[in-house]
């Protein structure tokens, strides 16, 4: 019925490790828990985020809006018809 032809919008996340200062906003406040703090260091010694489960991203762009370093952004991807896969 109405719902099943509405697709999940997907987002592809781009991260710049160099600029990240490890404040943790994106990891903490991503509504779908897509990101997580990566164990690696960047040049400044911070732990940048990495995309833990890319399929969960619904392109809400909150990580891009809240990131104080402008070091993460999301581009809307072709909508897929997979069911909800958020953890």
């Amino acid at each position: 019925m109405f719902f099943n032809d509405l697709k999940q919008t997907r987002g592809k996340i781009y991260i710049s490790n160099d600029w990240c200062k490890g404040c943790g906003f994106c990891v903490q406040f991503c509504p779908k828990g897509v990101l997580d703090t990566s164990p690696e260091y960047n040049a400044k010694g911070y732990h940048p985020p990495y995309v833990k489960n890319p399929d969960a991203c619904h392109d809400c762009m909150f990580c891009q809006m809240i990131c104080p370093e402008f070091s993460i952004y999301v581009i809307k991807e072709e909508a897929t018809n997979k069911g909800e896969t958020n953890k």
């Binding site: 160099d18 200062k21 943790g24 891009q64 990131c67 104080p68 370093e69």
Partner: peptide
């Protein structure tokens, strides 16, 4: 001129985004 001088976790960057 990036990256900028503001500290980790500062709110100014978010405001500039908005």
């Amino acid at each position: 001129r990036m990256p900028h001088i503001w500290c980790p976790g500062c709110g100014i960057g978010s405001e500039v985004n908005s």
